[in-house]
Design a protein around this nucleic acid. Structure first.
Lengths: 201, 201
DNA sequence: TCTAAATGATACAGACCTGTCTGTTTTACT
DNA sequence: AGTAAAACAGACAGGTCTGTATCATTTAGA
């Protein structure tokens, strides 16, 4: 008596992919430490042996979750940037817009990278490496955008805006979420205007 | 054979206080979920029964930890503010200074309130209430400082600076820590100048 | 000094966790 | 159709966790 018809519809999805999706949702919603592998496999409708075939340990699964979030984030970033080619200021504003949009989503619970970094203090944890790389990448992308605007030193303004973005991530769940979006955008403008040699806001 | 002489020196400290101090250090350093009560009592040199006499559950101990951090934070805030009576701008700058100093301390691992909020997703968790109240208090204090400066609307600039401060907290452990301090201070100035009707930076 | 409260030491219950093992069933490919 | 890989199902080991129960010991006050 199989619990599900063998060639059921819609469950043709890769087993690995189903595990990833379920684990991602659970880890983000409840925190990685609060979610056991038994819950993941139960929710995913998958055997525990399958999980451990694709992921050596639970820590690896957590790292894979962050890696996936990282890729999704930059894919979105790239697609938004592509809508304003050669216009760094418009790009930055557009990024603030979609990021701000996410902050106001129901169930928003902060930046996954920051949350996992808060949960796992061990510097050598595989997921922490992903988080650090992610934040370095954010910093680098902001810096090149700002350099494109002709603002000097680009590193300083980029760092300030990185502070603002990370601050918006963590503040959205503590303060009113829809407020953070507006604050972020206004503050970014203020930072840019303060540093710009030729202010053309 | 008692492991410690009964009236030993320096251990006359309250049992409850010894538990609080040990738990605070461990929770902050490793994360509350990663620290078991057995580790706390072992480090504190205290019986588990004593812990459960003063704290009904571990969650209560976590909440007490955050409460204590909250009180220490505002005590420091008040003492710094008292050094610049009637000078809100100097106060805000001084706050940026000591906060920036903390970010660069060895072993800095972010804002305890934000870390615990990231670890415990349950909205009803007692510690989460403390964290939310703490961040609301930060926002309120910033707002009154900025209103004192004559900047309108105070709420907006306060929100932007709250974003910056929270961003500095979480970014310090990801980026270079001593950099965050400078970025914070510069960015706060930029925000103030952008909003001030009469800029006297 | 006597007594009551506080503390210590430790075992324990019950639950949960990660990761493995075994054996069966389903899928996919030839 | 036949075969090998993949997936399922479920038990299980070994550990950790929270919270309680038991009993000895120490402290503090009358």
């Amino acid at each position: 008596m199989p619990k599900r018809a063998p060639s059921d519809t819609s469950q043709t999805a890769d087993v690995r992919e189903r595990i990833m999706e379920t684990a991602s949702a659970l880890f983000y919603e409840m925190g990685a430490r609060a979610v056991g592998v038994d819950l993941v496999v139960a929710r995913a409708g998958v055997a525990k042996t399958s999980l451990y075939r694709y992921f050596r340990t639970k820590d690896d699964l957590v790292a894979a979750f962050l890696q996936r979030e990282d890729e999704d984030f930059w894919a979105k970033w790239d697609s938004v940037a592509a809508q304003h080619p050669g216009a760094p200021l418009q790009q930055l504003e557009a990024h603030c817009d979609w990021i701000g949009e996410r902050l106001a989503r129901p169930g928003y619970r902060g930046c996954p990278q920051l949350n996992i970094a808060a949960e796992f203090s061990d510097e050598t944890h595989p997921a922490r490496q992903v988080a650090i790389a992610h934040k370095a990448e954010l910093r680098a992308r902001l810096e090149s955008l700002i350099a494109e605007m002709g603002i000097q030193p680009a590193s300083r303004a980029a760092g300030q805006i990185a502070l603002l973005i990370n601050g918006a991530f963590v503040s959205a769940q503590i303060l009113e979420p829809d407020e953070a979006a507006g604050l972020l955008k206004q503050a970014v403008k203020a930072i840019l205007n303060a540093q710009a040699p030729k202010g053309k806001a």
